[in-house]
Design a protein around this nucleic acid. Structure first.
Lengths: 243, 243
DNA sequence: AAGTGGTCTAGACCACGAC
DNA sequence: TCGTGGTCTAGACCACTTA
């Protein structure tokens, strides 16, 4: 029996507003009820409403105009991520309107390579769980991901590990670490023979290379990963609010 | 440093804390004063302090641990952008510890090409101000940018336009439009002969291609641009807080 | 002039981590 | 247990847009 805490009010408000935007109760281009009105409707303080709206604005979902009102952004349908969601490949595929799937290619303990050892601040030759996975959008391969997690962070008794889980879910199930932030390196790269084969592209095609390292609250690296992203098959399009 | 009224209090607090972090008053890895303590020190409410800290956390500058305290992130030096700074190439270069410079290649009115007309929602053949510029990091060319702005958005009497201004400053000086948000397309591309020459790379090298369209609060496209980013010369590395 | 979002305050109580 | 950050409230006043 697991403990359930009451869901934070702000989170509930968040879900309600997102739902109303998604299902068209608040149509694209239209004005939302005022903050005071929402505050009354939902019976929460205006401060709470504002916290939630700030989040939606940062994602580009709404536009707020002082002295006028809050509007649903017209152009969100074109976008598949905001810069905070860059690691959630499944959601990214989903919000492009396609069906995501993960295929596990390999998943096994092995010594860390040089790059991984450096990323994870491990002594050379330390054991990591190596994971290679292929993400599909509507049965078309679009992202090839190689991850490494230090073995000692994982609950070995939970093996075998399920390679089709999202990284978030994977960590929650097999480890007690929590991710605080990630550092991401964005590069352009040419497809090697092997990568090209998996992604069904010509060898030498340009691909996005996304290298992510996840850290916990104590600044310890938890996971490092290199992803090859076929930007011809799946656009990477993001909104940025003008802070 | 003291608090005065004209500029927003939160902004002043923001600057104060950033300064203290940058100059080492709050050293990397060390704990900041508690929120209540800061609230007393600066004579602002705790809510205001929290607003500012939330911003710093989103940028990855600090880590907050419930029940413990707020810490300066150790790894900030490695990073050159955060969620939302992707368009500010000059700042991006600067925060990599290098000296930014902008060279104006061309700047002149011309008809919009097909792509620009579509991005900017203009009739084919409409006039735009075309701008081609090269960004340098320590005298090394790193980003080639081509922008287009509909001519009728610009104050023609202000010509000639200064092509060495940041896009933000450019718009402020020559137009009354304000940018609300941007949609960015991230791609990998191969350097054409011409692009390679400007960036001093081999023809066919992989480059990041960043296509940005800026919109104002009324959802009208203001600027569109295509940038070629030499990721071998200048890493694109960003922090993402785990929301 | 009225109504909107923007800013800020002063408090309350809770959840968590270190001691 | 104590101090920290996390959540939330009720209300004040300001700045801006629209009519």
């Amino acid at each position: 029996m697991s403990i359930t805490r009451p869901t934070p009010i702000a989170e509930q408000v968040n879900q309600i507003l997102r739902t109303r935007i998604r299902d068209g109760s608040y149509a694209p281009g239209k004005r939302l009820p005022s903050e005071s009105e929402l505050s009354r409707q939902l019976d929460v303080s205006r401060a709470t409403v504002r916290t939630v709206l700030a989040g939606l604005e940062a994602e580009g979902l709404i536009l707020r105009k002082q002295g006028d009102g809050t509007y649903v952004n017209l152009r969100i349908q074109d976008v598949n991520t905001h810069l905070g969601g860059l690691w959630e490949f499944s959601r990214l595929i989903e919000s492009s309107g396609r069906q995501p799937a993960i295929k596990e290619l390999t998943i096994q303990p092995r010594p860390a390579d040089d790059n991984e050892a450096e990323c994870l601040a491990l002594p050379l030759g330390s054991l990591v769980l190596g994971m290679e996975r292929l993400f599909f959008a509507d049965d078309q391969p679009v992202i090839l991901v190689a991850n490494a997690i230090p073995l000692h962070f994982l609950d070995q008794s939970a093996a075998p590990f399920d390679g089709r889980l999202h990284i978030r879910e994977f960590l929650r199930r097999y480890s007690n670490r929590k991710i605080a932030y990630a550092i991401t390196d964005l590069r352009a790269a040419l497809a090697t023979e092997r990568i090209a084969q998996f992604l069904e592209r010509a060898s030498g095609s340009p691909l996005l290379k996304i290298a992510i390292t996840f850290y916990d609250r104590d600044n310890r690296p938890i996971i490092c990963g290199q992803s090859y992203y076929d930007d011809a098959a799946l656009h990477l399009r993001l909104v940025q609010a003008w802070g």
